[in-house]
């Protein structure tokens, strides 16, 4: 059907029309409204400026970005190591290990928060163990550290799967060629394998960053006192009823996460093209 000519174009339009209508009415239009409402407060456009000027919001924005960056770096290191290992080796029990490692993929933020409480909360595993070993109960679930643990917990499966999929697609002959030329295992890793995985690492890292920026459920479960941006937005909206500020902050948050993803995609895209 869809080769060329008027008929096929009409058909293509007819096929996408329902999705376009739903998407336009319930996403694009509301997003535009969000932007306008952000302008409609008593401060006008200065509501947006406040995000960058008022210390409370700026601090929250910066600390959220730092948290997201730290989560991304740590997750890439952990899941990159394990993902590469699992992709390159076959051993009994491997399939089970992969299945276990990917469970948290579909847990909502609230459940992740609860997992953090189970690990580092007042009745948590870490607390119990540390009390037995050092005589002191270590509890950090209800702080930035707990949130960090939760986001790493949540992000490991996705990065792991991305790295594994990319590593399995690598041409094994490239690593063999490097070895034939005298490269040691670490040189093969640094010169050949990691550059080939760069697109996958970039895109996995960007998703990781964006999720950590915008996630709400985990912070909500752990405490209302952690001043990450989504919590600030929620507070502005429900407690302060400052809808304009909440809208402006949401819009800025959306822009930051969307930019992170687009940037990574275009970076990964060019290096993918170079590898083709």
């Amino acid at each position: 059907m869809i080769q060329s000519g008027i008929g096929s174009r009409v058909l293509a339009l007819a096929l996408v029309a329902p999705a376009v209508a739903v998407f336009g009415a319930f996403f694009l239009l509301p997003l535009a409204r969000l932007f306008v409402v952000g302008l409609s407060g008593p401060e006008g456009w200065r509501t947006y400026a406040a995000v960058l000027v008022e210390p409370r919001y700026l601090e929250s924005l910066v600390s959220t970005m730092l948290l997201a960056a730290a989560v991304t770096a740590v997750t890439l290191a952990i899941a990159g190591t394990s993902g590469l290992f699992l992709a390159r080796n076959r051993f009994p029990g491997r399939a089970l290990l992969v299945a276990l490692l990917t469970f948290p993929l579909v847990f909502p933020g609230v459940v992740i928060g609860f997992m953090v409480i189970m690990l580092a909360g007042r009745q948590g595993l870490i607390g119990t163990l540390s009390e037995q070993v050092a005589g002191q109960r270590i509890v950090f679930a209800y702080s930035m550290a707990g949130l960090f643990l939760g986001y790493v917990y949540f992000s490991i499966p996705r990065v792991l799967l991305t790295v594994m999929a990319a590593a399995e697609k690598l041409d094994p002959q490239q690593a063999e060629a490097a070895r034939a030329l005298g490269a040691r295992p670490w040189q093969v890793l640094v010169h050949v394998v990691l550059p080939a995985l760069k697109p996958a690492l970039l895109s996995a890292g960007a998703i990781c960053f964006a999720t950590a920026m915008g996630a709400f459920g985990t912070a909500f479960t752990l405490a209302t006192r952690i001043d990450v941006l989504p919590m600030v937005i929620y507070t502005e909206f429900t407690l302060q009823a400052n809808i304009a500020m909440a809208a402006a902050l949401s819009f800025v948050l959306g822009i930051v996460t969307w930019l992170a993803l687009s940037l990574a995609r275009s970076l990964a895209g060019t290096s993918v093209a170079a590898a083709a």
Binding site: D171, Q174, E176, R179, A180, L181, G182, A183, P195, A275
Partner: peptide, 20 residues
Amino acid sequence: LPIERRNVGMVFQSYALFPN
């Protein structure tokens, strides 16, 4: 000896050139 210490030259079907 592993391949990296045999000093052999090897040419592959897929070329195996490093794209980076």
